[in-house]
């Protein structure tokens, strides 16, 4: 029952005709495409991503794309296509986990801060603003290096970085709604705070949370690539886009473009997918606010 309260506005986004629809649909197609790749990786991947995929004599030099290796191989002889497939698992795991963590912490704090204002709000706002004022990538690197390289630790580091984004948006919305007549009307009806927050204010912030989720995830993919670049997400020889990008840097100088091109393309595409969803939703939201 409560879930449907939150989902209703989301579903209603898709019922009507509106401007951002194609952006959202394109974004969804991209994201779902990569999700499918991640899930089906073991069945699609032609090779083990951490095993030699070519005869030993060919493994000394990256092999260009061919029928056997659609994205070529890297300088250790691993198949790039298989690595991209398996790499999507790491990226999606880290980014989705991180976003859900940030959401799970940022949204409730934002609700409380916006509803109660006063001291609680001031303290939380100061904490969140100080996190927010750090450049995201530097903060993430700092946290991840303390925790050690692993996908879960990378997710925690990213989660910390994006909590303030959720917090600030939800707090702003909640503050506005708390001062609105309809929330005062609910108070006059004798509603307990819990009901007002969860059943009335939260569903009204749901579309904004979705926008932040989309744009935040897009940003997180780039930050995650940054973490991997410094070897803070996975350890060799595990596949990861950002890590492969780092390893391919030397190859590019030697004329082997494919070991850097395909991981870069994958990162860009997935980030674009999430960004399109976020932008589309936000356009839609702006239009609806205008109409109201």
């Amino acid at each position: 029952m409560r879930l449907s309260r939150v989902m209703d506005p989301i579903v209603s986004l898709f019922r009507e005709r509106y401007e951002g629809k194609w952006m959202i649909l394109t974004g969804l197609v991209i994201v779902l495409f990569f999700t499918a790749l991640a899930i089906l990786a073991p069945y699609i991947a032609p090779y083990d991503p951490t095993q030699l995929s070519v005869p030993l004599e060919k493994a000394l030099e990256p092999q260009p794309p061919s029928w056997d290796h659609p994205m070529g191989t890297n300088k250790i002889g691993y198949d790039m296509f298989s690595r991209i497939l398996y790499g999507s698992r790491v990226v999606l795991y880290v980014v989705i986990t991180a976003s859900l963590f940030s959401l799970a912490i940022g949204v409730p704090l934002g609700l409380i801060s916006g509803y109660y204002s006063g001291k609680v709000d001031r303290v939380l706002s100061i904490i969140m603003d100080s996190i927010y004022s750090f450049p995201g990538i530097i903060l993430a690197i700092a946290i991840a290096s303390v925790l050690g390289p692993s996908p879960t630790n990378a997710a925690i580091a990213l989660a910390v970085v994006y909590v303030p984004t959720y917090y600030r948006m939800v707090r702003g919305q909640t503050l506005k709604l708390t001062q609105s007549v309809f929330v005062e009307a609910l108070r006059s009806l004798g509603y307990p705070t819990r009901v007002i927050l969860l059943r009335h204010i939260l569903p009204n912030t749901a579309p904004v949370i979705l926008v932040v989720f989309g744009l935040g995830a897009a940003d997180a993919i780039l930050t995650e690539a940054g973490l991997s670049f410094f070897g803070l997400t996975v350890t060799a020889p595990n596949p990861d886009w950002g890590y492969d990008l780092y390893n391919g840097l030397d190859d590019f100088r030697n004329g082997y473009w494919w070991t850097i091109f395909f991981p870069g393309l994958a990162i860009m595409l997935l980030a674009l997918g999430f960004a399109l969803i976020g932008e589309g939703l936000s356009e839609r939201l702006a239009l609806r606010l205008e109409r109201e």
Binding site: D8, P9, S180, V181, F182, E184, A185, L186, S188, L189, H200, P203, N204, E292
Partner: peptide, 16 residues
């Protein structure tokens, strides 16, 4: 003890 407001649209949750 109940209250009714001037603007009925503003006093209802728009999504409910």
């Amino acid at each position: 003890m109940q209250m009714i407001y001037q603007d009925p649209y503003a006093s209802l949750n728009p999504r409910m």
